[in-house]
Each structure stands twice: as structure tokens, then as C-alpha cells.
Design a protein around this nucleic acid. Structure first.
Lengths: 207, 207
DNA sequence: GCTCTATTGACTGATGTGGTCAATAGCGTT
DNA sequence: AACGCTATTGACCACATCAGTCAATAGAGC
């Protein structure tokens, strides 16, 4: 299907993939322009359509690419044998932030895919999107040692509050980055803040 | 400036305003189509440009309109004499949810404005956007009685965790609503859940 | 110098854009 | 009924951009 494309040297593949992801991420499927993609990738219009049958096939190829890349990276790094919830969630958020900083456009691309409403995407991507959501929320809770938590309140709610805290902390830092000139996330400061909240949360929620 | 428009009967004004807000909210400034706006508002193309000099003026008018509407409604309802932080924040979130369910497109419109990067908007809307953010986070904390909180952790972080919890709870319910057939928020269930988290948070964070 | 594939970019017809403007509808006044 | 005046229309404009095509060319291997 895409064998012609996959036989290209890696550098050119990457140029095309990155350009296309960036464009789709910024504008969504229908508003994304193949003209912009070839300009950014520094290839000719004809070449893009030599490798990919049409815009739709390109988009689907990219979704598969992004999905596999994020899933692989996440599962490669997460440590499921860590039973302490705080450490687990802190680690998961940290991985997510790493990936986010490494592949910001890929995250945006996946995010945008949620909002696509052309029939194409709703049908063909529905299942995979659901799977990806589970990466964020499902498996993170498996095998957690709940015995450390205080017993006078619902532990499930505590888990949610903790998860939300780290998520909001990340979002806050991301929003700051958006307003800053270079759009760069200050990971060092985020790490420091995460540690501070980590301490507050353990103090208040552990026995 | 917009006197011609403001002399219209209210019903027609609303039709135009709502159509325009909806379109800008969905597509952002540059991709929004004046053709779509007049179609939705059921007026002719010419009439829109009879009332508003051009697309830009329309956008700026709408931002002012949305800004004032949200600010007015919020300050009208919030009770600054309530010194208990939990009650205050619970009330604020409840107001915000009310407004969100009443004016979903207006919230989306304002949200989109953050991401506009045409010079027009960055310059002319910058200050106002900042003010609106303060509505959400700044004044909510004024006059709070901090003496009730436990003293072994940073109280400012506790306030953030509480705020984030109620916000995430609202977001969660909103996302559920998006997936449901009628897009309706189950306010009763949200209220119940808020009470449950309220209890967990007071137990863990008050003395 | 031949073959064959990789690559180009000018081109197409369709669609959509913000904005204009001459024409008209409809109401208040005389 | 006839005038004036504003509210309202929608065909129209010049231009931009779109996804996709294809004849022409470049360049590598033999």
C-alpha cells in the first residue's frame, strides 16, 4: 500500500510525515492543505500524490503512524510493577509530558482527530481513539496498593483528585508555555512543582 | 459605531449575534465564513455589511459583547461575603456551569480567541483576555477564611487542588454530555457528585 | 546512450472568499 | 396616491485556494 513511500530514505520520509502531521494538527483534516504540506516538506505536489493515493489515505496512514508511535513509547517507559499510586501517577504524567514535549504536533494531531466529524474518520478511527484514551486512564490504575490510603473517605475519589491535580498542573504549565515567546515548557519547574504537590497529597491522603 | 445595528429589534439582533458567535466559535476568526453567518441568521449578505463595516469589526463587536455578558452574569451571581472556601468555590463552579450550559458558544468563542494569532487579535484583545482569566481565578480567592485549613502543608496548594477538583469534575460531566444524544448536562448528578467530593476534601484538608 | 524510475510544477475546474452595489420592498408622511 | 427614506436583497466581482493530474525532465544503473 505505502511500500513506495516506506522505501524512501528515512530523512525524506520524516520530512513528509512531520510536515503533514503539523498541517493536519493545526487545521484538522478538511482545512489542511496538501499545498502547505509539500511546501513545508520541500517536495513537489506530484510526489506526494505519487506516494499516497489521495489526501484521505495520507491522513489514515498518519493516524496509524502516530497511534503506534505514542503507544509504543508509552508502554516502553511505564513501570507497571510500581505499586505506589503517587509514584505511578507521577511517573505516568512525567512520561506523558516527555512525549508531549518530544512530539507536540502528534498530540495535537490525535486531539484534533477526536473532533473530526467527516464520516471517514468517525467510522475508521473510532475504535483506535478509544484504545488510546485507555492508555491515559485505564491501565494506569492496575495493581495499585490501596492499603496506604486513609480509610475515612472513599479511596476512588482520592485517586481521582490526585490524577486531576497532576493533570491540571501539566495543563497549567502548558498554557503558560503557549503564552511565552518560544512556546517552550519549563520542565525543570514543572518537575519541582510536581514534587511539591506530591508532598501535599501524600501528607493529606496517606494514613 | 454600531448604532444602526443596536436599533434593530432585539430578536433580529440576537439572530445575527448568535449566528456569528457560533460560526467564529466553531472555526476561529480567519476560517469563519460571513456567508455561513448570514445563512444561519437568515439575513442577506448585504445587510450584515450594512451593519458592520467588515468582518474584523464584527469580530471585535462580538468579543466585547461576550466579554460583558459573561462578566456581568458572573459578578451578578457570585457571593463575595461567603468566607468558607469550599462553599465559595462550589458556588463559583456552579455559576460557571450554569453559564456554560446557557451560553456554550460564547465560551467556545472566548476560548478560541486565545488561540487567534492574527495581529489584529493579539493586540486588541490581549488585555481583555487577561481580565477574563482573572474572573475565573483571581477574585474567587478574596476574603477567604484560611484558619480552618490544616497547617502542615502549603494552604495555597490546597486551594489549587480544591479548585482543580471541582473544575475537573465539571469537565468530566461536560464531556459525558457531549457524548450523550441530547448533549444535556445532568445537573442533579453533578450536584450530588460535587457534594461527595466536597466531603472528601473537607475531611482531608480542614483541621 | 539506453532504460526506467523518481521527481517536478504548471495546470485544471471547482469551490469559496470578503465585500459591493444597483435594485427593490415597505413604511411614514403629506 | 405619491413621495421620500431607510431596510433589505442577492447577483456579482476579482481573487484565492483547493485536491488532484500529467506531460516533461532529471538522474541513476547498466
Amino acid at each position: 500500500m505505502f511500500s513506495k513511500f516506506l522505501n524512501l530514505d528515512k530523512e525524506k520520509q520524516d520530512r513528509i510525515i512531520n510536515a503533514a502531521i503539523k498541517e493536519f494538527a493545526q487545521k484538522g483534516y478538511s482545512s489542511a492543505s496538501t499545498n502547505e504540506i509539500v511546501k513545508e516538506a520541500e517536495i513537489s505536489k506530484g510526489l506526494l500524490f505519487h506516494y499516497f493515493q489521495n489526501k484521505k489515505q495520507l491522513y489514515l496512514f498518519l493516524f496509524d503512524y502516530c497511534y503506534e508511535l505514542l503507544a509504543d513509547e508509552f508502554y516502553k517507559k511505564i513501570n507497571f510493577s510500581e505499586e505506589d499510586f503517587f509514584k505511578r501517577i507521577r511517573h505516568a504524567v512525567s512520561i506523558k509530558m516527555d512525549l508531549l514535549s518530544q512530539y507536540p504536533d502528534i498530540f495535537k494531531f490525535i486531539e484534533e482527530a477526536y473532533f473530526e466529524d467527516s464520516p471517514l474518520i468517525k467510522i475508521e478511527l473510532g475504535k483506535r481513539i478509544k484504545e488510546l484514551t485507555d492508555i491515559n486512564f485505564g491501565k494506569i490504575y492496575q495493581g495499585i496498593d490501596l492499603s496506604k490510603f486513609r480509610e475515612d473517605v472513599d479511596v476512588q475519589k482520592i485517586l481521582k483528585i490526585i490524577t486531576w491535580t497532576f493533570e491540571k498542573l501539566s495543563e497549567e504549565e502548558l498554557n503558560k508555555a503557549k503564552l511565552s515567546p518560544g512556546h517552550e515548557i519549563d520542565f525543570q519547574q514543572l518537575q519541582i512543582k510536581a514534587e511539591e504537590y506530591f508532598e501535599v497529597l501524600t501528607t493529606c491522603f496517606y494514613k
